[in-house]
C-alpha cells in the first residue's frame, strides 16, 4: 500500500515539476542548487526535488525555450553558477498552466466531495 502511494506521489511530482520550476524562476533568476533548496524550504520538504530530477528538467525546459540560462561569477574560490531566467514564452506558458491547475484542483475538490 505504501509503495502504491509512493508511486502515485512520484507521478504527481513528476507532473508538476515543470510548473514548480517555472513558478520559482518566474520570481527571480535562480541557479540550480538554489532552486532545489528553495523548493524544499517553502514546501517544508513536501516538494523535495533531487538534483538528478531538477537539472535534466531544467535542460529540457531550456530546449523548449521556456527558460534561458547564463553563467555568472560569484565569490572568489567558488566556480561560476548557472542562472536560469524565464522567457516571455515561459511566462505565458506558466500563466496557462496556473489557470489549468486551478481548474483541475477545483474539479478534483468537487469529485472528492461528491456524495452520490
Amino acid at each position: 500500500m505504501q509503495s502504491e502511494l509512493e508511486k502515485w506521489q512520484k507521478e504527481l511530482r513528476k507532473g508538476s515539476t515543470k510548473m514548480a520550476l517555472l513558478s520559482l524562476i518566474g520570481c527571480r533568476d535562480m541557479y540550480g542548487y538554489e532552486i532545489t533548496r528553495e523548493l524544499s524550504r517553502i514546501t517544508d520538504n513536501v516538494f523535495a526535488l533531487t538534483e538528478s530530477n531538477a537539472y535534466p528538467a531544467l535542460h529540457l525546459m531550456e530546449n523548449e525555450q521556456l527558460i534561458t540560462s547564463y553563467w555568472k561569477e560569484t565569490e572568489a574560490g567558488m566556480p561560476p553558477r548557472k542562472y536560469y531566467r524565464i522567457t516571455p514564452r515561459g511566462r505565458a506558458f506558466f500563466g496557462e498552466m496556473k489557470k489549468e491547475w486551478m481548474k483541475h484542483n477545483e474539479a478534483m475538490d468537487r469529485i472528492c466531495q461528491y456524495e452520490g
Binding site: 541557479y31 540550480g32 542548487y33 538554489e34 538534483e51 537539472y55 535542460h59 553563467w71 567558488m78 566556480p79 561560476p80 553558477r81 548557472k82
Partner: peptide
C-alpha cells in the same frame, strides 16, 4: 562541459 560545470558549482555550494 555545460552539465559538468553546473554540477561542479552544485557540489561546491553543497560542500560550502
Amino acid at each position: 562541459a555545460e552539465i559538468v560545470n553546473e554540477l561542479r558549482s552544485t557540489y561546491y555550494e553543497a560542500a560550502e
